[in-house]
């Protein structure tokens, strides 16, 4: 009961936020990022935090522990997370996926030594990527403006509220009473996640001209894709495929968001809505390391 009213409140907040963002948009160059000056400042803070603390620790961690051990740590936390992923699949009306998630948890917990091994993968049970922000997006709630959260990295109003307010609240690690145990687990998880993204981050750093913009746009594209489980309604392909040499001058610079202030109004609400997460996994073509928490690779740090 409390939970459902909390959800209602959250939805209301997100909706309100989205509406407000519509009003606030006019000043900024990018309709999806009206808070750019603040975001850039926080992005810079995260970047420094990463450069001077998290990244060096993650590098030491990677050097100290062999790959199978780190994979075990990743799997252990990933297994815990699968419970909430399943719940979100259920909330999104995807019982089949939810069932797969539950099977993963059961199989990996029992046969994978408490989740240290991902044996369910061999049974053809793929891991899914869900969180409460995606669930809200699925329900048609707009993303609101892009936000960079201190320590947590790229987000949006909707996803930030969902993550800090709901994902965190149901996170089993969060509910551990002993503070020292809880903090240790948090730290291990964050360092392990960051370690998994060291390579991806390097690829991203060498690819981006302006890291802030690059991460933002990758995140927003990625979240939109995730909400539709990798199959978002196709973009106007003919339009974007049209070579700019053609003399169709009236063609708007479709994806040059910075250039087109009016784009937000053209786009249906729930589409503007549906943007979010994950930066660097981007280029990590086959080696797509931790596509999951890739927000990190931006130097934005994702502590989960």
């Amino acid at each position: 009961m409390i939970f459902s009213s909390a959800i209602k409140r959250l939805c209301a907040t997100a909706v309100l936020g989205w509406a407000l963002s519509g009003c606030a948009t006019t000043g900024g160059a990018n309709p999806e990022d009206p808070l750019q000056p603040i975001n850039r400042a926080i992005f810079g803070f995260n970047d420094s935090f990463d450069e001077f603390l998290l990244k060096p620790v993650a590098e030491a961690y990677r050097a100290a522990l062999p790959e199978p051990v780190r994979a075990g740590v990743t799997n252990f936390f990933s297994n815990i997370e699968d419970v909430w992923i399943g719940a979100n699949n259920l909330l999104q009306g995807k019982p089949e996926q939810a069932l797969q998630d539950m099977l993963r948890v059961v199989i990996n917990t029992i046969f994978g030594i408490g989740g240290v091994l991902d044996v369910a993968y061999d049974e053809g049970l793929d891991k899914h990527n869900e969180d409460f922000g995606q669930t809200l997006g699925r329900w048609g709630i707009g993303s609101g403006p892009y936000l960079v959260l201190p320590f947590f990295g790229p987000s949006t109003l909707r996803d930030g509220v969902a993550r800090l307010g709901v994902d965190n609240a149901v996170d089993p690690v969060w509910t551990i009473d002993r503070v020292s145990t809880r903090n240790s687990l948090y730290t291990v998880r964050a360092v392990n996640t960051r370690a998994g993204l060291l390579d991806a981050a390097r690829v991203m750093e060498q690819a981006a001209l302006d890291k802030y913009r690059f991460v933002r746009d990758a995140y927003l594209q990625r979240r939109r894709s995730l909400i539709y489980d990798g199959d978002p309604p196709s973009e106007p392909k003919a339009k974007r495929a049209a070579a700019p040499d053609e003399t169709t001058v009236r063609q708007p610079p479709d994806f040059g968001r910075d250039d087109m202030r009016n784009a937000a109004t053209e786009r249906p609400a729930n589409e503007t809505a549906n943007l979010c997460f994950e930066a660097s996994a981007l280029f990590v073509y086959p080696g797509t390391g931790a596509a999951d928490d890739a927000a990190v690779a931006s130097g934005a740090i994702s502590i989960r």
């Binding site: 746009d217 990758a218 040059g256």
Partner: peptide, 24 residues
């Protein structure tokens, strides 16, 4: 090939934003 999309992130779309910003 004229674009690669990894996890729903289009390489070219991302550069489009990046480039537009630089040009501006």
């Amino acid at each position: 090939v004229y674009d690669v999309k990894v996890g729903g992130v289009s390489l070219i779309t991302n550069y489009r934003e990046d480039f537009a910003g630089q040009v501006r």
